[in-house]
Nucleic acid binder design. Structure first.
Lengths: 208, 208
DNA sequence: AGTTAACTTGAGGCCACCGTCAACTTTGTT
DNA sequence: AACAAAGTTGACGGTGGCCTCAAGTTAACT
């Protein structure tokens, strides 16, 4: 399973590339020219392609940390006493992550270009399920809200951050507050459409 | 003010181009290659640039109808007895417009590339002001909701439509229902951030 | 110190879109 | 019918990003 270990210089270049990618993606989003990443890493474009044959591979490596961070946030959320507070905490923290990293914001809005879901992703999925279920059972999150509906929140915040980051880097908090007010049981009116199925959502994130 | 009238053949080509642009933008969004529009119009790329020196000019011409439609929707909304119903009607109808036209959806999310606001736009702005103010005064729309907050709704729906159009072309209605539940007075909790100012919002839409 | 396999390099071919312009065609006017 | 002005055409040069690969360099093992 594990491939041959990299030569020392190759390993060093790999690390440089990942760090450069993190910086450049954070500043300019997921669609930057890969030349920019290579340049920042002080390495030729050929080396980049050597190490990361596709853009998705690089994205994947660059955001491993973020994925792990989200996992920790989710665990912390589940550790909070109040289920609703946990839910709000999680959504707020992830949004803040998006607000601070244009690349991660893109990622949240589109999914990884061609990802085979990793173990970490599946764990994240599972934890989110729990956060939603617990908040719903606690009674404050409306009973008709599903895990798949979380995508609506993500997309909303993604787009608002995209639009307002330059002008007003904190208004997304106002938007989020408006959203959260619609998710509480006392606010709920019957919904006109069924939620996305798990498969539909997977398909959406699969097709970039 | 009015420029020299176009020659007969030029006028005919202009119309073909506008219709072609409407179709192509609707199918493929605002970023299609302009060659595609010229081809659909049965006209050379040179002619397109002749008539519409910048992409923004073409977009502008292609969506004049839609802008007018929105105006009529707004007036109809104001004609409804219940202020809240009027507000909901307007938001739903505009969303439906977005759902049916990828180009208009893009436009709603970004604004016209480099638009000098036209008379129609200003009128639309004014009517929307009234719709919001009336719904707020009617008591059902939360009192802290401003005209500028409408952008949050637009951005949310824009992104959801973008993501789900291929998979589930009507789920946006579910998302919208969740949003609307957060906008009603009984649901309101204090908001953590002030709204965007009119100038900030203008700046956002100006910079494409 | 020598050998080889691993790694790096960057120029160069490819592609897709942009926007221009000199040569040609059409309109409509006298 | 002849002419000037208006309009059309599409090949062309420019830009920018993608990805490759033959030639050169370096690590690591004997």
């Amino acid at each position: 399973m594990t491939a041959t270990p990299l030569r020392k210089d190759a390993e060093r270049n790999r690390e440089r590339l990942v760090r450069a990618a993190q910086e450049v993606f954070a500043e300019s989003g997921l669609d930057v020219a890969l030349e920019a990443v290579a340049k920042r890493a002080g390495v030729s474009i050929g080396t980049l392609y050597n190490r990361f044959p596709s853009r998705a591979d690089l994205v994947h490596a660059a955001f491993a940390d973020s994925v792990e961070t989200v996992g920790r946030l989710a665990e912390h959320a589940l550790g909070l006493d109040d289920p609703w507070d946990g839910f709000v905490y999680f959504v707020e923290q992830v949004s803040q992550l998006q607000a601070g990293d244009r690349g991660y914001n893109d990622l949240a809005g589109r999914g990884v270009p061609a990802a085979t879901p990793t173990e970490d992703h599946l764990r994240g999925y599972d934890l989110m399920s729990q956060i939603v279920a617990r908040a719903r059972d606690g009674g404050r999150l409306r009973p008709d809200f599903t895990l798949e509906d979380m995508a609506f929140i993500t997309w909303s915040i993604t787009k608002t951050i995209e639009a307002t980051a330059a002008t007003s880097p904190t208004v997304w908090r106002r938007h989020l507050a408006l959203i959260l007010d619609g998710l509480q049981t006392p606010a709920a009116h019957p919904l006109p459409e069924p939620p996305l199925s798990r498969e539909q959502l997977a398909a959406i994130y699969r097709d970039c």
